[in-house]
Design a protein around this nucleic acid. Structure first.
Lengths: 142, 142
DNA sequence: CTGGTTGCAAAATTTTTGCACACTC
DNA sequence: GAGTGTGCAAAAATTTTGCAACCAG
């Protein structure tokens, strides 16, 4: 799928553009995460990188960096290790398969109009929201 | 506010109704969590319970139990310790203040109609979603 | 009473850090 | 070459567990 390649490329570009060096470990982590379409833990990535010689510490450091740059996101797989997920820069939402872990992104946000409603009801000044759908992906519906 | 008292009472009732003993540590954890209207970590609760002699292990065990019973929920305060939050049994969503941690529940769910839309687009079989709004509560808007 | 529950302390897990060396720009 | 970034191993932080004693029902 062409889109993903672009996204990966952009991510790598972003890292450099913001003044961070594009080292081999970073490149490998970003590539692996971006090819993955799933939410994974730091140790998942470490395992996936296997004999490619990236330390677990660097996986953590790179993931933190990606989150900071908005190139990855943490998802609440509650009661579990922290999971990370590649994502494009724009606001969007994820659909996660509870069976196999596949993640799909929704390209648009459905909720903008609701923030005003919530503000009115709660008197909060809302400046964002997090939304995840859970279910079974096409392949896991048997 | 009357509602909260009810919710606490119901929670304690639920624990017993489902065959779990209502011990002093459990009661204390449930009471503290339910009076709190904020997302807290296990160690927050442990600290809050202070000299009341509840072990950290029991705080964790009780929180796990509450989540299992649907009486509490974990929230994704990402990159941080696991946070827990009292909640009523029905499906609902939270509005969290990023400044002081106050949490408000939205009584109804705005998203039911969207699940069908998401199913159509993604071919997932959606069976749930998690939604949190973030912002500043009335008191923190200065 | 009796079995579920607790506290404690130890273990397991997850994440962060210090430091000498390596690599990107 | 300069200074960021890395690996390693140790430390910190968080969560789970084994077990004898305890207590709610």
């Amino acid at each position: 799928m062409q889109m993903n390649r672009n996204t990966l490329t952009n991510a790598l570009r972003q890292v450099q553009a913001r003044g961070y060096k594009l080292t081999q470990p970073r490149r490998l982590v970003v590539e692996t995460l971006y090819r993955l379409h799933r939410a994974v833990t730091a140790s998942d990535l470490y395992r996936l990188l296997g004999r490619r010689g990236v330390s677990l510490a660097s996986v953590y450091r790179t993931l933190d960096l990606l989150v900071e740059l908005g190139l990855a996101e943490t998802v609440a797989h509650p009661g579990d290790e922290q999971h990370f997920l590649a994502c494009s820069l724009d606001h969007h939402h994820h659909v996660l398969c509870d069976r196999c872990g596949l993640v799909t992104e929704l390209e648009e946000c459905l909720l903008g109009p609701f923030e005003a409603l919530v503000e009115e009801r709660t008197k909060f000044a809302i400046d964002g929201h997090a939304l995840e759908f859970h279910g079974r992906c096409a392949g896991c519906q048997v």
